[in-house]
Design a protein around this nucleic acid. Structure first.
Lengths: 162, 162
DNA sequence: GATAATTCCGACTATTATAGTCAAGTATTT
DNA sequence: AAATACTTGACTATAATAGTCGGAATTATC
């Protein structure tokens, strides 16, 4: 069972896309700035998201990524799956050969847990998340912070060129 | 979020104990044989289980481990916790400082998932598992296999000494 | 048509956790 | 006393995550 930064980053980035990508494509640079994820790592993740047809890309200046489907048609489970983090809690990935060809004593338990987790995450769409107040609050704070950084960068540039 | 072989081994071993430890203590050697877990590794795990007062040990010949409490009072969640596999799906372990001091965009989502998983595993006791038919079936097959191995070992010894 | 913004791609690296192994020692029962 | 079993600590190998780096391809805009 793996649910680590990789899967969390992927969902975070997709959510950022859902929130900021209504008008125009969103560049990975912007996502990196807002979510604190390294650009190079985002590139890796989005390669997988694109291969899984969850996002589509627009190259060139003003380009970036946009969701390939409607927000309500993309579930958290799909995103986590796309970056190869299996939500299977069994050792054998459900095959039942966990103990040299046979089932281990707790195989059924982990199978139940896997189903539970998958059902939970499959039932949550990006649209659900976008509409949650607690998440909107976090997004708002992030935008304000980025705004401040831009301002101070601008001031710095003016100082330097003066 | 970590749920790997370590936690699975711990639960498997505890379940083995619940099944075979009704009469006398069970040695780690027996558990190793039945469950295919290395003895040394079991020693590590049981050191933690003992510190968490889930098992108690009996030394000397005929010794081994037994459950420290009734089967119905030990939950799967407690066992997984005992070997240091946190079932927390957040990056910040629930503290909410996942993105340099602030909450990351998906913090609440992972928090919900963590609660979900913990509730699920906390609600399952060793006693519940022992009474499941599918698990009893696996246990029975294991016992038969070990029996066969013992027989062939015995035969081998007789051949060698002859 | 040059430039700059952007995605795309592959190879490389560091860190960390798991999943062990090994050896020596301590306690307890027969 | 000897065998059995637990206890402890140090060590190691493997694999995955979480990146980094350099460059190439694409396209909008000046």
């Amino acid at each position: 069972m793996r649910l680590t930064t990789k899967g969390r980053y992927a969902v975070t980035a997709m959510l950022d896309l859902a929130i900021h990508g209504q008008q125009k494509p969103v560049s990975l640079n912007d996502i990196s700035g807002r979510q604190g994820i390294s650009l190079s790592y985002l590139e890796q993740l989005f390669a997988k998201l694109r291969r899984n047809e969850l996002v589509c890309s627009v190259r060139g200046p003003g380009g970036g990524y946009r969701l390939a489907r409607h927000e309500q048609d993309i579930s958290v489970a799909q995103v986590v799956d796309a970056v190869n983090e299996s939500m299977d809690a069994t050792r054998c990935l459900g095959k039942g050969d966990c103990q040299d060809g046979d089932q281990c004593l707790t195989h059924h338990l982990w199978q139940d847990l896997s189903r539970q987790i998958h059902a939970f995450l499959n039932d949550i769409s990006l649209n659900d998340l976008v509409n949650r107040q607690d998440i909107l609050d976090v997004a708002k704070r992030q935008d304000e912070r980025v705004q401040q950084q831009d301002n101070s960068t601008e001031a710095l540039i003016q100082m330097t060129s003066a």
